[in-house]
Simulated scan of single mutants.
Amino acid sequence: MEHLRIVVCPDSFKGSLSASEVASAVADGVLDVAPDAVVTCLPMADGGEGTLDALLAVWGVEPLTVSTVDAIGRPTSARWAVSPDGRTAVVELAEASGLPGVADAPLQPLHASTRGTGDLARAALDAGVAEILVCLGGSASTDGGSGILTGLGARLLDADGNQVPDGGEGLASVASLDLSGLHPRAREVRWRLAVDVTNPLVGELGAARVFGPQKGARGGDAEFLDGALRHWAEVLERETGAAVGQVPGTGAAGGVPAGLIAVLGAETTPGALLVAEAVGLPAALASADLVITGEGSFDSQSVNGKVADGVARLAAASPTRPPVVVVAGQVLLPEAQARAAGIAAAFSIAPGPVELDDLIARTAPRLRDLAAAVTSLVTAGRR
């Protein structure tokens, strides 16, 4: 009998283990039962927070660091990475412009910006890469991507020719866009934006109204920011010809895709699929007998653009169509819905009623035991 070929491609278990640590624990469990199995570990992410770490683990490269500013303008440092072949840079928005970086200060929904992420993107352009992956998630701002463009040398001017301040509030007074100082390579590279929502830039389902409250928008703030983004969309269309106000996905990360699509020709991609391509998952699945993925909570969100959904779709499209098994901290999705999404089975690491703190403290050994049990079932079936 040929050696069992298993691809282990989990997301992180937030608050407990990174995707790389989850993959390692699962691999250990597989090898406990099937020491001759060929196990390929490809830590995954959905394009939000944790994506940079997942790619660093798979690529085996060290992160690079840039001195920049956080979402409210304070000096900070942030990481980014370049693929081993030097062609692709990964910039994670949460590194410089995310909510975790400003957790120690009052939220500033009208003034927070993505300028720090623009500094990371500038460093990537200076490094000579051909493609920049921007991972959108955990944003602290609603600035329509204007901060990133400013960091790359663009100038947003008011009716008097003065540069408007950073943040969503400044968008309301933008009269023109000066791109003469834009980084010379900004429009030469391919920009790919990892998104996990389909919300448009403006309207009831737009960036400000849906996600603004998470970033501190209170009272009339969300309505004001929606109007500012609507005005920003009008300016972008007048200056670039791109109508971005209702494009699905432009509401991600406070509207970042809108500015980057209009000015840089960026394209949006479901985050999990973008990461899968970057780590080489489709090729690995082509010869797999079994796929084990996982995340902290397996629920309805999991089969709507998250890692498990992306893995299941790619597995169904691969030549061997390997079964996909999910391991999770908790399983909340009904079995019928999981099967309909292409998931063969989903198992929780909880042995029964257990306190959350205990579950978190013992996530790794429980993942190892669960992976061993799953592998035992699979090997028994093969015999």
Score class of each variant (00 low, 15 high):
residue 337 Q to E: 15
residue 311 V to Q: 08
residue 371 A to P: 04
residue 138 G to P: 13
residue 263 V to Q: 02
residue 379 T to K: 09
residue 95 E to P: 01
residue 232 W to H: 05
residue 226 D to K: 08
residue 109 P to F: 03
residue 46 D to Q: 09
residue 131 E to G: 09
residue 245 G to W: 08
residue 380 A to M: 13
residue 91 V to S: 04
residue 31 L to Y: 00
residue 242 A to L: 05
residue 167 G to P: 08
residue 67 S to F: 07
residue 236 L to G: 03
residue 196 D to Q: 11
residue 276 A to D: 02
residue 246 Q to N: 14
residue 245 G to S: 15
residue 223 E to V: 15
residue 234 E to T: 14
residue 341 A to Y: 03
residue 25 A to S: 12
residue 84 P to R: 13
residue 47 G to K: 03
residue 160 D to L: 15
residue 317 A to W: 00
residue 224 F to M: 14
residue 252 A to N: 08
residue 17 L to Y: 13
residue 132 I to E: 00
residue 114 T to F: 07
residue 121 A to T: 00
residue 131 E to L: 13
residue 70 D to F: 03
residue 187 R to V: 04
residue 120 L to D: 00
residue 38 V to T: 09
residue 351 P to C: 10
residue 377 L to N: 10
residue 255 G to Q: 06
residue 175 A to R: 12
residue 194 A to G: 14
residue 215 K to M: 04
residue 207 A to L: 12
residue 231 H to F: 09
residue 309 D to W: 13
residue 39 V to H: 02
residue 5 R to S: 15
residue 222 A to D: 10
residue 188 E to F: 08
residue 114 T to Y: 05
residue 223 E to H: 12
residue 52 L to I: 06
residue 58 V to R: 11
residue 299 D to W: 09
residue 142 T to W: 03
residue 289 D to E: 07
residue 128 G to F: 10
residue 300 S to N: 11
residue 199 N to H: 14
residue 152 L to K: 02
residue 131 E to N: 11
residue 383 R to W: 13
residue 303 V to D: 00
residue 213 P to K: 10
residue 216 G to P: 11
residue 214 Q to E: 11
residue 368 R to K: 14
residue 46 D to A: 13
residue 44 M to Y: 14
residue 72 I to H: 02
residue 124 A to R: 02
residue 215 K to A: 06
residue 111 H to C: 12
residue 188 E to N: 10
residue 256 V to W: 04
residue 99 L to N: 08
residue 31 L to G: 01
residue 156 L to F: 15
residue 263 V to M: 01
residue 324 V to G: 06
residue 55 L to S: 04
residue 213 P to I: 04
residue 179 L to V: 03
residue 65 T to V: 15
residue 45 A to G: 08
residue 290 L to R: 07
residue 155 R to E: 02
residue 52 L to S: 09
residue 39 V to Q: 01
residue 96 A to M: 00
residue 43 P to A: 07
residue 353 P to Y: 10
residue 379 T to N: 04
residue 349 I to M: 13
residue 72 I to V: 15
residue 40 T to K: 10
residue 258 A to K: 02
residue 252 A to H: 12
residue 210 V to E: 05
residue 351 P to F: 09
residue 270 P to G: 03
residue 356 L to N: 10
residue 272 A to L: 07
residue 298 F to M: 04
residue 275 V to D: 05
residue 365 P to D: 13
residue 102 V to A: 01
residue 336 A to G: 10
residue 267 E to K: 13
residue 291 V to G: 04
residue 306 K to E: 02
residue 319 P to Y: 06
residue 47 G to C: 12
residue 164 V to T: 15
residue 226 D to C: 12
residue 88 T to G: 10
residue 352 G to A: 14
residue 226 D to E: 10
residue 77 S to M: 10
residue 307 V to H: 03
residue 239 E to H: 04
residue 224 F to W: 15
residue 151 G to N: 03
residue 79 R to P: 07
residue 196 D to H: 12
residue 136 L to P: 07
residue 226 D to V: 07
residue 65 T to N: 07
residue 80 W to K: 01
residue 117 T to M: 05
